[in-house]
């Protein structure tokens, strides 16, 4: 299995380089000019050319690409065109924030999704089933940016003044101003408060899909013989459902994690934008708009790598869970 995993990872490297190359080509073909962000009234064309030269944009495309590829293969992601800050620093600075948001949201979504899915499976075709699946699917169907703004309206702007709630959640950012002056407990509290809205929004969007999946998986398990046996033994129903059935129903669900996590990273783009969360998604959007290709390429490579790893993980888990699945099927 280790050999198989190693082979997959190695095979992914040219793949990811291919992906990054496509992005490079797209950015290179785009009509805009990264230097134009420095345009000012009164500037002469010569000055603009000079700026372009200073940014290293005067070289022909294949040279720019070669330069990038060479340094990339040596593990150097280069410098951001927009700010001159090393790309590695930029990414390392924001990546933990995205991971934090994604991890919390995934955890919450799995807990809620599993709970809802089991409830629905136990009461299949009941009104509760319909209502729950309707509701979770409704949130799943909402554009996340839209839900995010609504959440701010309800829990932040109107929380104190209109509804009279004691806490109004901070609408944006990761920490309050003056965070570094707080004591350790207050810091944790401050971070948690800032995390609530973005994480909750993301959770609401995700839960529907997971609940659906758990429900189907549970339905299949509940029909199996050993569940009937457990019931026949006279075990209480909750024990049958939450212990015996769920344990087996969860196995395929675990593999979902591998698929979800990397997808989430790009799924947080809108959430990060609305909540001004300094994460990968916003970095990518900003960099794309500025045609800051070193950042975009590194980010794409990173995203792509996570997708590959996630898929590999999911495949391996599948293999463990269900030996019938043949490996190497792609």
């Amino acid at each position: 299995m280790l050999v198989y995993a190693a082979r997959r990872v190695l095979a992914a490297v040219p793949l990811l380089l291919g992906v990054a190359t496509i992005v490079f080509v797209v950015l290179a073909l785009a009509p805009g000019d990264p230097a134009s962000m420095y345009l000012r009234p009164g500037m002469s064309p010569e000055t603009l050319d000079q700026i372009r030269r200073n940014m290293g944009l005067d070289a022909p495309l294949h040279v720019q690409y070669g330069r990038w590829l060479l340094s990339f293969l040596q593990g150097d992601f280069g410098q951001s065109l927009a700010s001159g800050i090393p790309v590695k620093d930029r990414i390392l600075e924001v990546l933990p924030n995205t991971l934090l948001l994604a991890a919390v949201a995934i955890l919450l979504a799995f807990v809620a999704g599993i709970f809802l899915g089991v409830m629905q499976a136990v009461r299949q075709h009941s009104p509760l089933d319909s209502v729950l699946s309707g509701t979770s699917l409704f949130f799943y169907s909402m554009p996340s940016f839209w839900l995010a703004i609504m959440m701010v309206l309800v829990f932040s702007v109107n929380a104190g003044t209109v509804w009279g709630w004691p806490v109004s959640l901070p609408p944006s950012g990761m920490v309050s101003d003056g965070y570094d002056l707080l004591g350790p407990m207050a810091r944790v509290r401050d971070r948690l408060l800032h995390l609530v809205l973005p994480a909750l929004t993301l959770t609401l969007v995700l839960t529907g899909g997971i609940a659906r999946y758990v429900r189907n998986s549970m339905l299949e398990v509940i029909r199996q013989d050993y569940i009937r046996t457990a019931r026949a033994k006279g075990l209480p129903e909750w024990q049958v459902v939450w212990k015996h059935a769920l344990r087996n129903a969860l196995i395929p669900v675990v593999t979902l994690l591998g698929v979800y996590f990397p997808l989430l990273l790009s799924g947080t783009v809108f959430i990060e934008y609305v909540f001004a969360w300094p994460g990968m998604g916003r970095l990518m959007v900003d960099s794309i708009l500025l045609e800051d290709y070193p950042v975009v390429l590194a980010g794409t490579f990173l995203f792509g790598g996570m997708v590959v790893l996630g898929n590999l993980l999911a495949d391996l888990l599948y293999g463990v869970v269900d030996p019938r699945i043949r490996r190497g099927d792609g």
Binding site: V152, S156, P170, P171, S176, G178
Partner: peptide, 22 residues
């Protein structure tokens, strides 16, 4: 003592921050 410049790209959220004292 301190002055912070914050970037909040979505205008509605920025207004929400002003309304809530952020």
């Amino acid at each position: 003592d301190r002055y912070t410049y914050r970037v909040i790209p979505e205008q509605t959220i920025l207004l929400a921050e002003l309304l809530t004292g952020g």
